[in-house]
Amino acid sequence: MRKPFAIAAGPKAVGWACLCVVFSPVSRAFAAAPLNYLTSAGVQGDSVLPLTWGVTIISIAVIVIIAILVAGGIWRRPGLSVQPAGRRLPVEEKASGLNWIWIGVGISSLVLLFMVVWTMAVLARVTSPPTRPALTIEVTGHQWWWQVRYLSRDPAQIFTTANEIHIPVGEPVRFKLVGADVIHSFWIPQLGGKTDAIPGQTNETWLEAHKPGIYRGQCTEYCGVQHAKMGMLLIAESPGDFAAWRAHQLQSPAHPATGGQWAGLANFTAHCGACHAIRGTDAAGMVGPDLSHLMQRHTIAAGILPNDPADLERWISDPQGIKPGALMQKPELSANERASIISYLETLN
């Protein structure tokens, strides 16, 4: 069911967008900060953004007013600049000064009440998505990566990937969040706020992107030594592109073409398969990220390294050098074995 006030976000968002254009140097700074939440590319973000800016501006105004009042009070009637020890100085109570409190607290209370009402209005708007989501994605936080599972009533439509989430633009998507080990927090700031992924309970949130793009996400609940390097990407794409991606993900990756790649698969299964899974092969580990269609991803190691052969080589050679304390141990591989594994992984389109 469509909620009427969801439509109201549209013109407001345009207004705020205009304001951002006015402050274009500021918006450039935002653009250079991919995790900033002072701009928005999603429906939930659009509803919250005016409130974020509103309370920020009110806060700055309050600070300026109080600072002026304090400075004014100091410079208005300055007494001595030093106090000679023990000298008696005049003491007087000419004015009670209580009006300051009544007026100041009165105005403050009105502003605070306004903020409460505004908060409640926005909260009501973002609590549930504007329309019933057609797509549900289960995201499980692990130390220190994200497992992403596309749910469906039809078991044949379910598949698992890691660290990169694809969603179609223009429709809300439901996220079910779980913590596999400790508490993590799921956050794509350009699209919406945080929701914790807690062991033993399933939290829900929703996001809707209104324009295609690659949005950065980050774990924001301290979850151990590699909390800092637990990123992810959310790729919002047109419904057509999304459908194509999804269809491709559902297939098993193509078999290796060359003997070297076959050797790579064998080595992968022997050395990596206890933790990692690749659909259609004997590698079926559940501990680490599913690597089927690895080459479709922009990054590796939970959003830390670009996904190119050189960085793949770096990562496999020394995961502990890149993410000290990560649960992936340095594999005992000869240079040849490593090269064969990389040549095989590069086929996983």
């Binding site: 009042l69 304090v70 004014g72 009637r77 300055p78 000419k94 209580l98």
Partner: peptide, 12 residues
């Protein structure tokens, strides 16, 4: 603030 405004500050 009112205490400062209605008083006579000594700048220690």
């Amino acid at each position: 603030i009112a205490t400062i405004w209605t008083g006579r500050p000594v700048f220690t």
